[in-house]
């Protein structure tokens, strides 16, 4: 198993954001966590990235190593788990190229960087055209491409994606998900995707979990979840 999360609990003050969830991601898998706004999806990703403190009793194992013993930047640079945060959070004052280069800050395999840059530009030719432009001036779709490109450069054992579809036009959305699929297939990158857009997420992923107010209430293959009458009613609007 690539990533094993057991009894993950996170609180923000009095608010219990995650109340002991357990899930797994296997090597090369695409997994999705769907759920409504405020269900705790982003918190789950932040906990894996070590950006929020977890409570006593939470366990996270990544390739048989205790994830909790790694500092946030080491989760990326040592374990190769990259994170595309909610709202992209690019460095708007840096150029497209600088955003990509900065993501290689702690990489040891510096000779591989040019090839990886080429790879990103192949996936998203628009980024190559705009490489000297400040990231803050990009359109929403381009920013999402850059956010994924930046994550790709920083580590690609596993990618955590937080609502990549947000605010994108349908066609751009498809573009982005096709690129992600390509990364998954060609690099073997495992993907953990959290989405409000359940239909899109289930189409893309092999397995899924349903998160409701801090608890995982359902899990199964994407096909199973898509045919589940409750899911249909609550998330797919059918």
């Amino acid at each position: 198993m690539l990533l094993e999360v057991e009894n993950l609990r996170v609180s923000y003050g009095q608010i219990k954001a995650l109340q002991g969830i357990s899930f797994t991601v296997d090597e090369g898998e695409i997994i999705t966590i769907i759920g409504a706004n405020g269900a705790g999806k982003s918190t789950a990703l932040r906990a894996i990235s070590r950006m929020v403190p977890v409570e006593e009793g939470s366990r996270m194992t990544y390739r048989d190593q205790d994830l909790l013993s790694f500092a946030p930047d080491k989760v990326v640079s040592r374990l190769g788990i990259s994170h595309v945060p909610e709202g992209r959070r690019l460095f708007g004052n840096l150029t497209v190229m600088e955003n990509l280069i900065l993501a290689c800050f702690a990489r040891k395999d510096r000779d591989r960087i040019p090839a990886d840059l080429k790879r990103v530009f192949n996936l998203f030719p628009r980024l190559q055209e705009r490489q000297e432009q400040k990231a803050g001036t990009l359109s929403g779709g381009e920013q999402q491409m850059l956010a994924i490109g930046r994550a790709f450069m920083s580590g690609r054992q596993m990618m955590l994606l937080d609502e990549p579809s947000m605010g994108l036009a349908p066609l751009l959305m498809l573009n982005v998900f096709e690129a992600l699929k390509e990364i998954n297939q060609q690099e073997g990158t495992s993907i953990l995707l959290v989405e409000q857009n359940a239909r899109l997420a289930l189409k893309f992923a092999q397995r899924g979990y349903v998160l409701e107010t801090g608890n995982l209430v359902l899990s199964g293959s994407s096909a199973e979840l898509m045919n589940n009458p409750e899911i249909k009613k609550a998330y797919l609007g059918a």
Binding site: P85, N93, L94, A103, F105, S154
Partner: peptide, 24 residues
Amino acid sequence: TRWGMAMRAMAYDFVVVPLVGVPL
């Protein structure tokens, strides 16, 4: 330099800096 680049990035949004593998 990339160190300077990291400083500029941190000036923009220091919360995300560790997320791209830069030791804050």
